[in-house]
Simulated assay, not measured.
Amino acid sequence: MKAYLALLLLVITVASSQVQASAWFTWPTVGESTLKWGWWKIYTAELKTPTGKYLASDSNLALIIRYLRDIDKNDLLSATDKQWQHLGIPSQQRQQWLRVLAQQWPSVKQGDRLVFVKTATEGRFYQHGKPLGKPLSVPLSNAFIGIWLSTATEYPKLRLQLIGQ
């Protein structure tokens, strides 16, 4: 009986994280920001959570990135690597994660939108409402979202706008 209850609890937990991940578009917006480089606008970013508020301990969130320029996949990967270097992630770990992302990410065109949804058990990219690749591990998901939400981010003003401050 205990084993049955434990299995039932596991199924409910997994199902609930999947429902939460698929419902990100109904979540309220916490904040929005635009990344600019010189006079060029690169993308707009929007952060959503189930409550519309951001807490560093939140495991459920969605980051929506709307690209304002065409960007080649290799340039996206290079920019991600640069941000992870800034956050102090070791080279070997960065390279491993970049290989995973290289299998999932497309090159983006102006107007494209990529969505990253993070739950307690995984992270996942979506484009046009469809998942890109396999779910990502929690450490990789945390490292990716840390580019925007870490207190050590290279863009602290963007972070503050995203988290609604």
Score class of each variant (00 low, 15 high):
160 L>M: 11
51 T>S: 10
150 S>R: 01
124 R>W: 09
61 L>S: 14
121 T>Y: 15
5 L>T: 14
58 D>A: 00
59 S>V: 09
136 L>W: 12
15 A>E: 13
77 L>E: 11
66 R>M: 06
7 L>G: 07
86 H>N: 03
108 V>D: 08
59 S>F: 10
142 N>H: 13
144 F>E: 01
72 D>L: 06
18 Q>R: 10
123 G>K: 00
154 E>D: 11
72 D>P: 06
123 G>I: 00
102 A>T: 08
155 Y>E: 03
125 F>G: 02
86 H>M: 05
139 P>E: 04
73 K>A: 11
159 R>V: 06
15 A>M: 14
77 L>H: 15
165 Q>H: 10
3 A>L: 13
96 Q>N: 14
94 R>V: 03
1 M>E: 15
149 L>E: 08
120 A>Y: 15
9 L>D: 11
95 Q>C: 01
65 I>K: 00
28 P>S: 01
29 T>K: 10
120 A>P: 12
135 P>R: 13
142 N>E: 15
16 S>R: 09
159 R>W: 12
92 Q>V: 02
79 A>K: 13
47 L>C: 12
28 P>M: 01
110 Q>A: 09
92 Q>H: 04
68 L>E: 15
77 L>K: 14
136 L>H: 08
45 A>G: 14
143 A>H: 09
19 V>N: 11
102 A>L: 07
130 K>L: 03
14 V>C: 04
66 R>W: 11
92 Q>L: 03
94 R>L: 02
39 W>D: 07
59 S>A: 07
51 T>R: 05
161 Q>S: 10
90 P>H: 12
148 W>A: 02
26 T>D: 07
158 L>Y: 07
36 K>H: 10
151 T>M: 02
111 G>D: 13
105 W>E: 06
4 Y>E: 15
28 P>Q: 01
115 V>I: 11
8 L>Q: 05
88 G>Y: 13
3 A>F: 13
75 D>G: 00
74 N>F: 12
7 L>I: 11
44 T>L: 05
102 A>M: 12
20 Q>M: 09
165 Q>R: 10
130 K>S: 05
124 R>S: 02
143 A>E: 04
96 Q>Y: 11
111 G>F: 13
155 Y>C: 01
